[in-house]
């Protein structure tokens, strides 16, 4: 259903990996849940991503990382967000993230981690919860 109606969500790919099939699937899933999804394209720097967060006044930021450098890239992205004053945004991470790193990412401020084996419905429901959506959402 349209749980994320009216929410502005950025899907970004920091770092050097060049695979965005997963990011695109998440982008389409969130769109189908009613969100306005802004996709940045491949290989973006943390500063670039933080700047997009500010300009687009987004509610959530999804970082798709398959390179294995997630700990460093997520830390750098939070640093850029703080520099630009965008640290209030909800950050979630997707990709190949070993369970042993989940705690580290959460410590950095990540609200949720979504990996490939998760059901897409679960991703939508979990994000809706993090964004404080109660029933269906009402904003345009």
């Amino acid at each position: 259903m349209e749980k994320l109606r009216g929410k502005r969500i950025i899907i970004a790919k920091p770092g050097l990996d060049g695979h965005d099939a997963g990011a695109k699937i998440i982008a389409l899933t969130l769109r189908d849940a009613g969100a306005n999804v802004i996709y940045t394209g491949l290989r973006k720097t943390p500063d670039y991503i933080a700047r997009v967060v500010i300009d687009e006044d987004a509610d959530a930021l999804g970082l798709s990382i398959l390179s294995g450098s997630h700990n460093a890239l997520v830390a750098a992205t939070f640093e850029s967000l703080r520099k630009f004053g965008g640290e209030d945004i909800k950050v979630f991470v997707g990709g190949t993230i070993p369970a042993s790193d989940h705690e580290t990412l959460k410590q950095l401020g990540v609200v949720a981690i979504y990996t490939a084996e998760m059901k897409l419905d679960h991703v939508v429901a979990s994000l809706a919860e993090h964004l404080g959506v109660t029933q269906g959402g009402h904003e345009r």
């Binding site: 349209e2 969100a35 999804v37």
Partner: peptide, 30 residues
């Protein structure tokens, strides 16, 4: 475009404006 089915949208115009988007004189809103 907004999807007539879900009311959601996929906004991708920024990707094409990549080269210049670090410029502080530029503001893009999708």
């Amino acid at each position: 475009p907004t999807s007539p089915l879900s009311g959601g949208s996929l906004l991708g115009d920024r990707i094409r404006m990549d080269e210049i988007s670090a410029n502080s004189n530029l503001f893009i809103r999708s």
